[in-house]
């Protein structure tokens, strides 16, 4: 917040200089619609640092959290489209408008209010079970779930959150029903699995890997189109005959009405930034390998992903009272 205010003050001071000189001639604010420390924040910081080098202007992070990200996303959608406000957001950007439709609410924003700039990372979720549970394979889990519908439980980061959507996608494909116990965030969801309060969990590789190594949880399958580099022995759902894919991804967006030349400059800055060795190293340390896509490819990826998520959301339907 303070940094956001700082950026705003810097921006205000620079207003007289507006309209002269090439973009950018003052600091750029990058909105992160989640609190510091989460996946979005961890991705945005190295991206901002790498863009700074390319643009020769500070790129200042502003965490505008609230309402599952809707507050910051709506703020970006409504920002002046001059290239001085951009955003790093996660796949949930496609879920919130669909959920608004489902509940017949006035939407906080629509997806066509954003111009996609670049995809930075995309990690398939991994299905893990508490190591003390009997299932050794997806087939065993599905057989047991069919025998006792609604008895096997899973935790999630929240209703309609990524972890919830991924598990329901699997349940829908396998035609089984799991019991949903939602938590606030991926961390508490993992704690509940470790404590044996729930049976299964879908989460990102960065979260599950240390627990797999320690033998506390067992991985059964991954949601990617191909196997994960860090877990080469883990089968994908596609190999197992379930036609599902799910990714937790992070991308950079600008307000849709931003002029094309400015979007071009920002895109080039990101393209240059993702090659920066410091950036690659920072992302690898954080356990999220770079999966860069430039705007046109990212747009295609986003459209496909949004369609997948919309379908899963409609399959889940309204969740009344958890």
């Amino acid at each position: 917040m303070i940094r956001f205010a700082f950026a705003a003050i810097l921006a205000a001071l620079a207003v007289p200089a507006l309209a002269q000189g090439a973009f950018p001639d003052r600091p750029i604010a990058m909105i992160v619609p989640f609190p510091p420390g989460g996946v979005a924040d961890q991705t945005a910081r190295p991206v901002a640092a790498a863009m700074e080098k390319a643009l020769k202007q500070p790129v200042v992070l502003a965490n505008r959290q609230g309402a599952g990200g809707a507050v910051g996303m709506a703020a970006t959608a409504a920002a002046r489209p001059d290239g001085y406000t951009i955003m790093t957001a996660l796949s949930s950007i496609s879920v919130i408008p669909e959920a608004d439709k489902l509940f017949e609410r006035k939407p906080a924003y629509t997806m066509d209010q954003f111009a996609p700039l670049a995809l930075i990372s995309s990690d398939p979720t991994v299905l893990v079970v508490n190591a003390e549970r009997p299932w050794k394979s997806v087939a065993e889990l599905v057989a047991d779930a069919k025998a006792r519908p609604g008895q096997i439980s899973f935790s999630s980061s929240g209703v309609y959150g990524t972890l919830h959507m991924a598990t329901e996608m699997f349940a829908h494909a396998a035609q089984v029903k799991f019991k949903h116990v939602p938590f606030n965030g991926a961390g508490p969801a993992m704690t509940a699995l470790l404590g044996g309060h729930v049976d299964i969990l879908a989460s990102g590789p960065g979260v599950v890997l240390p627990q797999i190594k320690a033998g506390k949880v067992r991985a059964l399958a991954g949601w990617g189109a191909k196997r994960l580099d860090v877990m080469p022995e883990l089968p994908t759902f596609k190999e197992l005959g379930f036609d599902i894919e799910f990714y937790i991804w992070a991308g950079v967006f600008a307000p849709a009405a931003t002029p094309a030349p400015i979007l071009e400059t920002l895109r080039r800055a990101i393209a240059q930034g993702v090659k920066d060795p410091d950036f690659v190293a920072a992302m690898e340390k954080a356990g999220t390998p770079v999966a860069y896509l430039d705007a046109p490819e990212f747009k295609k990826f986003w459209d496909t992903d949004a369609a997948r998520l919309a379908k899963a959301l409609r399959a889940i339907g309204k969740v009344e009272g958890g």
């Binding site: 420390g37 961390g187 993992m190 240390p210 506390k216």
Partner: peptide
């Protein structure tokens, strides 16, 4: 255990992750 018990430890875990230290049971 590498699991947060509240918001503040969660931010600290995030700091460790950025430094390439995977907080976990080991």
């Amino acid at each position: 255990l590498g699991v947060p018990s509240g918001a503040i430890p969660a931010v600290m875990i995030a700091a460790l992750v950025v430094h390439g230290v995977a907080p976990g049971p080991t």
